[in-house]
Design a protein around this nucleic acid. Structure first.
Lengths: 213, 213
DNA sequence: GTCTATAACGTGATAGAC
DNA sequence: GTCTATCACGTTATAGAC
């Protein structure tokens, strides 16, 4: 961790690492179609030829980046739902914090993954299975537990998948639409971050307020 | 209206209209960078040369389309907030219905507008002022009214802009991430539409449940 | 006004010097 | 391993026939 930081400062990253770091940045920001290999090369401090020396072509680099980012986007939620002795409310709270923390660390991640899936929906299941992630399991687990909570009388009746969409919407949309929000609400980057930090607990309270009996 | 429908069936649209209809479809689905003028021409049932006869270049066509779609995306909310004798709750209810209805009619609209703004945030204010839309006014009006409602004791304390982000998130995210949701929840297009139809009132209740005192 | 043919350009990919 | 130069190709844009 500290090692990584030092590496970065000295920039004794290998050339492969420089390429992938640069590619991740540019692809995530602009998407596959709008990205020029020249952008990646410049960002990595080298020329295009070197990209092709290490990786066959643009698509190859993109696939590596997409797989990584895809997994960053979806993983973690599973850890939370595998956790045993935790209340439903606490699981929701951790999901919210996890999602917002992830997106605070990785700007543009949500928009990137959603867009590239929109361009080719098959990628979702293809890449998902490749990295051993099946988000459908999460959905089923969530639906099942929602039903149980309703039966136990801890929450009012609500469809599990609907509640899950509520949670995801509240966490992800502000980051997907970040440039729109920043412009309309006249927020700079720091102010946006501060708003999202506050938003973690507020979102949790907003949801619980609505569903608890 | 009916006239438009008949026009469409007979397809006695002018060539300009055919081009713009086709461009709107392709640009909205794929975005500027991934769109090929060949795609637009084929969709419009003609060849590329004719596009250039009517419009100088790809960028010109895009600007026209973006302006139209941008205004579809933002207008309407203002009508609702200008409406006089309507309660705060009812305004929220109409906002939700308006947003979801709009996006049910125009798939990919939200993702398109958000993405193109993300690629060039200045477009938001530039195009906004060009068509006489200043969404900041909506935000201010919403914040002001939220404060009043809190003062009146109809809702619990909440920051106006935070509540507005909640509402927009709940309405827009499912459409932005539609391909992800459809794949993960194994919904076809009709099932997704049905889910969103139900979602209108459920979203309203979810919000009111949370904020009302 | 609409087409075919082609020019002009940008971008991705490769060859070869160092 | 890294660079410069260049090729190959796809896409946009234009010229000119009909």
């Amino acid at each position: 961790m500290l090692n990584n930081l030092v590496k970065h400062l000295k920039d004794d990253r290998t050339t492969e690492e420089k390429i992938l770091d640069a590619a991740s940045m540019v692809f995530t920001k602009k998407g596959f179609a709008a990205t020029r290999t020249e952008d990646i090369a410049r960002q990595a401090g080298m020329n295009r030829a070197l990209l092709h020396y290490y990786y066959r072509d643009k698509q190859t680099i993109f696939n590596i980046i997409f797989e990584t980012r895809f997994s960053e986007f979806f993983k973690g939620l599973f850890v939370i739902f595998d956790a045993g002795n935790i209340s439903f409310f606490e699981k929701i709270r951790r999901m919210i914090h996890h999602e917002i923390n992830t997106l605070l660390k990785h700007p543009d991640l949500a928009r990137f993954v959603i867009n590239e899936i929109a361009q080719d929906p098959e990628r979702l299941l293809k890449h998902g299975s490749k990295i051993g992630i099946n988000p459908r399991i999460l959905i089923e687990a969530f639906e099942k537990q929602t039903e149980e909570e309703i039966k136990n009388g801890t929450i009012r009746p609500i469809e599990g998948r609907m509640l899950l969409i509520h949670i995801m919407s509240l966490c992800l949309y502000p980051f997907v639409a970040r440039p729109v929000l920043e412009t309309l609400m006249q927020l700079n980057s720091e102010q946006f971050t501060a708003l999202m930090e506050r938003r973690k607990e507020e979102t949790y309270e907003f949801i619980i307020n609505s569903i608890k009996k």
